[in-house]
Amino acid sequence: MKLLLRLLLAIPLLWLAGFVWFLLSLPAGVEAEVETDAIVVLTGGPGRVAHGVELLQEGYGERLLVSGVDPKVRPIELAEELGVDEALFTCCIDLGKQAENTVGNAFEIGTWVRRNGYTSLRVVTAADHMPRALHEIERELGPSVALVADPVAPKWGLSALATEFSKYTVRSLQMLVGRG
């Protein structure tokens, strides 16, 4: 009985310690000088696509994939929303419309990277989503593709951060035991 009680007390303490580590280890940004072949944006939060397009315009990658785009979205609509010329979408931006979650993003990104022969990627997503996104993309691509984290500000609510940490923890455990 004492062992069970200790275990029940240890689980929340371990979660809390992990959560603090997670918060302290979130990426703050990337040095602008880091060059990559291409840029990928995982949709799902404010500022991500705009940041990716800005990086493309500044020359930090030759092409951009926006992964997880709603199938109904057309390039012209996105160009208008971002205030950029549609020609930029025609020449240099691909909209991935298959992914519905982070695992799907990684698969979509992997397919795009292999098709284009890229060896380095700048990954744009929210800072709190970045650890899980990188984990999934690295799992999909292996060590042959260098990844550079380029985070945007997350939704800094404690609940959203705790949820993302919990998703990261569960997915890491699944991968550890070989079920993912």
Rank of each mutant, 00 (worst) to 15 (best):
R139M: 08
L3A: 13
M130K: 01
L95D: 12
A146F: 08
S144P: 05
R132Y: 04
V49G: 00
P151G: 03
T90N: 10
T125N: 06
K72A: 14
F89K: 11
P143G: 11
D85Q: 07
I93Q: 05
L173S: 06
P131L: 04
I137R: 01
E136W: 06
H51E: 14
P151E: 02
L16A: 15
E100R: 15
M1F: 09
L9H: 01
V34T: 09
R115F: 00
I11N: 01
I137P: 04
F107N: 10
R114S: 03
V73Q: 13
T43S: 12
I93W: 05
P151L: 05
A160E: 11
A146L: 11
A10N: 04
Q174N: 10
L173Y: 12
R122E: 03
T125W: 02
R74Q: 15
L16V: 10
E54V: 01
E31H: 14
P71S: 13
L161Q: 12
A133K: 05
E54T: 14
E108D: 09
S144Q: 14
A126Q: 15
R74F: 01
G96Y: 02
T111I: 06
A133T: 05
L158I: 14
V84K: 10
V84I: 14
P154E: 07
A38E: 07
G157Q: 12
L64A: 10
D70C: 01
R48L: 04
G83M: 06
I39F: 01
E140P: 06
L8R: 08
T125K: 07
L134D: 08
G110I: 00
S172V: 03
T90H: 13
V84A: 11
A32F: 12
S25K: 10
N105S: 05
V69N: 01
R48T: 06
E136Q: 10
F19N: 05
P151S: 08
V103K: 11
W15F: 15
G117C: 12
L55T: 08
Y168F: 14
F22W: 15
L161W: 09
V177G: 01
P154F: 04
G142E: 12
E138Y: 08
L161G: 11
V49P: 02
F165V: 07
G178Y: 05
V152N: 02
G83S: 07
P154T: 14
L4R: 13
M1S: 14
L78Y: 07
S172R: 10
L14H: 02
G52I: 06
A87T: 11
K72Q: 15
R48M: 06
Y118S: 00
L65W: 02
A79R: 09
V103L: 11
R132I: 05
V170N: 09
A162P: 08
G96A: 07
G47D: 09
Q174W: 13
V40N: 02
E58W: 05
S144E: 15
L9S: 03
E164K: 11
L13Y: 00
E140V: 02
L176W: 14
T43H: 10
L173A: 12
Q98M: 14
Y118F: 15
E108M: 09
A10S: 13
L24I: 02
Q98E: 15
F19Q: 03
N116M: 05
L24D: 12
L147Q: 09
R63T: 07
T36R: 12
G110H: 06
G18P: 06
P75V: 05
I93N: 03
L176G: 10
V66D: 03
Y168K: 00
G180W: 14
T111A: 07
L24W: 11
S144M: 04
